[in-house]
């Protein structure tokens, strides 16, 4: 890359030291570091502009047009696309689907990741083994994991893994992802996401746990606090506050961006279609309706931004720590 040839960024390497030269070098240094900043940041800013802001702007443009089978539309429709997409229909249904998904998956991941971290934190033998063994699934792709879940574990026919186990107890095979009632597909979706992301959040909690000073616990014990729940409730949990807020925020955004497992596990059905999957089928799928697709995407972005800001307000994310 061109950034490696920025000799000017290391000012006066060959210049002899001296007061006059030094003053000049300082000025030169400021100028040089500005240039260095742009040389390093420039390509990424250009990328950000080209691949993020231009598409967002173009989406907004498309959302005001009837953009059927074209991304250079001519028929201006104002806010009609927004009205269509926000009136009762598959898009609003999909918003409920992913809200429900977030409601299930965020608390579950939080509790289980924290529990895992506490267990792994206290362990005395084979620490590295236990840390990596829970973290490894994070490296697995959602698509691959979806295929394993769908084709081998929660296969709906009698020889699927889950159904084989049920068969030992004389229970009829269950169509895990084929039916809306009972909604077994939630079990499949949630276990998949837990398996994939627990390890990642466990590591975050583990790092935070290691940051808690031992003295705090010792002081608490001296004051008569019992080890276990009391210490956890009054020492560990408050000390994890910053990490908890960050983790919940990350999990919430991840849940709102849910696409891979829904798309790969389930057929395109109205009962389990989060917004991104719906928008994918509308705009990029067979629909080719870029106007409504863009309007939906912007509504969704606005929603995620709002929830994130609201959460920041409530939990104080981004405030200076203590």
């Amino acid at each position: 890359m061109a950034t490696t040839t920025t000799g000017g960024a290391r000012p006066g390497a060959a210049a002899p030291p001296g007061p006059a030269v030094k003053a000049r070098r300082d000025r030169h240094g400021v100028r040089g570091s500005t240039r260095t900043f742009w040389l390093f940041a420039g390509p990424f800013l250009a990328g950000l502009l080209l691949f993020v802001y231009v598409p967002v702007g173009w989406s907004f443009y498309l959302s005001l047009f009837q953009a059927q089978n074209t991304v250079t539309p001519t028929k201006f429709v104002g806010l009609d696309n927004y009205a269509d997409i926000l009136s009762e229909g598959p898009f609003t249904d999909s918003l409920w689907t992913f809200t429900l998904f977030a409601l299930i998956v965020v608390p579950l991941t939080y509790v289980l990741a924290l529990a895992l971290a506490l267990l792994v934190h206290r362990i005395r033998v084979a620490r590295a083994f236990f840390r990596s063994v829970f973290f490894i699934p994070t490296a697995c792709s959602y698509v691959v994991a979806s295929m394993v879940w769908k084709l081998s574990i929660f296969n709906g026919v009698r020889f699927g893994l889950a159904n084989t186990v049920l068969g030992w107890f004389g229970i009829e095979p269950i169509a895990w992802i084929g039916t809306a009632s009972p909604p077994w597909y939630w079990l499949v979706l949630v276990t998949l996401r837990l398996w994939l992301q627990l390890g990642f959040y466990m590591i975050l909690f583990l790092a935070a746990l290691q940051q808690i000073p031992k003295e705090l616990y010792e002081a608490a014990w001296t004051d008569g606090a019992r080890p276990g729940w009391q210490t956890f409730r009054h020492i560990t949990l408050p000390q994890l506050r910053t990490t908890s807020v960050a983790v919940v925020l990350l999990m919430l955004i991840a849940a709102y961006q849910a696409f891979d497992e829904f798309y790969n596990l389930l057929p395109n059905t109205p009962y389990a279609r989060p917004p991104l999957v719906y928008l994918y089928y509308t705009a990029l799928g067979q629909g080719q309706d870029f106007g409504h697709g863009s309007a939906g995407a912007l509504v969704l972005s606005a929603l995620i931004t709002m929830v994130t800001l609201l959460q920041g307000r409530i939990f104080g994310f981004g405030k200076a720590d203590s």
């Binding site: 089978n69 074209t70 991304v71 994918y280 089928y281 990029l284 799928g285 067979q286 629909g287 080719q288 870029f290």
Partner: peptide, 9 residues
């Protein structure tokens, strides 16, 4: 269908 539609635009 999806690959085709993105290909065509």
């Amino acid at each position: 269908a999806s690959k085709l539609s993105s290909g065509l635009v």
